[in-house]
Every structure is written in structure tokens, then in C-alpha cells.
Design a protein around this nucleic acid. Structure first.
Length: 259
DNA sequence: ATGTCATGCCTCGCATGA
């Protein structure tokens, strides 16, 4: 089974590339982030024509996540149970479902903006709720994984220039401690291989030639439990999808499983 | 080459977020 996660930065803007990539890559289950659409506007019909079911948590212009599967899509949970509000609203940042043999989450962790911003505190609270929600499945025997845009670089090697990130979000000890807490709950980081260069970055800013200069970050992560991680036969970042006109600023992370 | 991009509106340019 081939499972992937991809922050598409608008599923409307990305639809031609998304449909072409699903077919060419042979992906069975895709975790999507930043749909930037309402659930009503989500292109479920186009995906169904390719043989994929969809489950969507999306409310409009910002955020939005989805699960797309051609191997089953059952027991869908929309949202993060017990998750915090931001400015009085439960933002659409999580959805989970059972896709064939695996239980899967698609998450778009809050960005945080600045360390002294309310959004940063919200980010840490969001991680706390995520850990509580996934703890049982993380410790369970069924293959289970949380995939998505975590908006945290796990180590200094996961940013192109750590010196530039001093004092910034995505690299703080508290954010990395939130990832460590997920690992302590039974999940492990399925690190993909890069298709070029020595580090598997997954995101490159649109600005200042970020991609051509490989000024990237690894913030799109796959956190799998023991059964999931043991079944992994390969994993890579499909940087080809970051190239050319009409690319997202994130590349898909692909995981092959023997399940 | 690939020197932002995407959305949505008090909508044809700007504010916002990343």
C-alpha cells in the first residue's frame, strides 16, 4: 500500500497537478492539508472519477484537511477531539479514518506565527490535544500513523540554516518537546529519503529562490506506531512536484507499506 | 530556469497568512 501526505496550498489551485500525481504515483491513501476551500467546494466528484473516496474537514479560505483513499475510508472522525479554539473557533486542522488495514490522521498543525503570539500558545495546546487523542491507537497493534504538516522541524538538520531560525517558531524546544511527547506515546518519525541532495526537505518558501537554492525545511512528517513503522518498505520526498508552474510550496512525502 | 502565491472581498487592488 502506498500512502502519502501533501500540503497542497489550495486544492482548487492544485487540482490538475493533484489528479495527475495521484494517477502517476499510484498513491492509495493521500492525507491533504491546506485545502483552502469549503467542504462543499471540495472536488470530491473529480476524485471519485479516479476511484478515490474523500473525507473532508474544511470551512473556507484558511486551513482545511482531507483524506482521500481508494482502499476504503471508514469510521471517519472530523476534527481534533478536545482540541483548543482559536479566537472562538475550532479550526479545520484534523481528520482521521480507517483506510484498509491502517488508521490514519491528516493534520495541519497551527503555524504559531511568532513565539510571543497567541497562535504559538495555541499550537502547543493543539499538540497536547493531539497526543491525548492518538495515545490509544499509538500504543495499539493496528498500523496507525499521523501524517501531515506539523509545522515543526524535528532537528536542526531539518532546516537549511539553523542560525536564521534562532528565536523563530518551528524550531523551539517547546515545539520539539511536543514531537518528543508524541514519540513517547509510541509513535516514531518515518524519515523519508531525499531524491536529490543529502537531506529530505519537504517545504521550500516560494520567495527568494528557496527551491532552486534548496533552502528548505522538513516539516511534513509521518509519525507511525510500531506496527506501521515495521511495515514501511520505502519512503521518499517527491521533490519533482515542487518544480515548475503551479507547484505547491510543499512536496508530497510518500510511504510504501507491506500490509 | 524556478527572483511568491492564493484567497476573497465593502472586488480589478489590497489585506491576510504562510
Amino acid at each position: 500500500m502506498r500512502i502519502a501526505t501533501w500540503n497542497v496550498n489550495s486544492i482548487t489551485a492544485r487540482l490538475p497537478r493533484l489528479l495527475a500525481w495521484l494517477e502517476s504515483s499510484g498513491t492509495d491513501v493521500l492525507c491533504i492539508q491546506e485545502t483552502k476551500t469549503t467542504a462543499e467546494q471540495f472536488p470530491a466528484d473529480e476524485l471519485r472519477e479516479l476511484g478515490y473516496e474523500s473525507a473532508v474537514n474544511a470551512t473556507g479560505r484558511w486551513n482545511g484537511v482531507a483524506l482521500v483513499s481508494r482502499v476504503g475510508l471508514d469510521d471517519v472522525t472530523v476534527g481534533l477531539p478536545g482540541g483548543p479554539d482559536y479566537e472562538g473557533v475550532q479550526e479545520p486542522r484534523a481528520i482521521s479514518a480507517t483506510c484498509g488495514p491502517a488508521r490514519v490522521w491528516s493534520v495541519y498543525v497551527p503555524n504559531g506565527r511568532e513565539v510571543d503570539h497567541a497562535h504559538y500558545a495555541y499550537k502547543l495546546q493543539w499538540f497536547e490535544a493531539l497526543k491525548a487523542s492518538v495515545a490509544a491507537d499509538a500504543a495499539g497493534a493496528r498500523p496507525f500513523a499521523v501524517l501531515g504538516d506539523f509545522n515543526v522541524a524535528p532537528t536542526d538538520a531539518d532546516v537549511w540554516d539553523p542560525a536564521l531560525f534562532e528565536g523563530a517558531t518551528h524550531v523551539t524546544p517547546a515545539e520539539r518537546a511536543a514531537l518528543a511527547a508524541l514519540r513517547e506515546a509510541g509513535l516514531s518519525d518515518v524519515v523519508p529519503r531525499p531524491l536529490k541532495y543529502d537531506h529530505p526537505f519537504t517545504y521550500w518558501d516560494y520567495r527568494q529562490l528557496g527551491f532552486p537554492k534548496n533552502r528548505g525545511m522538513r516539516i511534513d512528517l509521518v509519525y507511525g506506531n510500531e506496527a506501521f513503522s515495521k511495515a514501511v518498505t520505502d519512503s521518499y520526498v517527491d521533490r519533482e512536484e515542487r518544480k515548475g508552474k503551479g507547484a505547491s510550496d510543499h512536496a508530497p512525502v510518500v510511504v510504501d507499506l507491506d500490509v
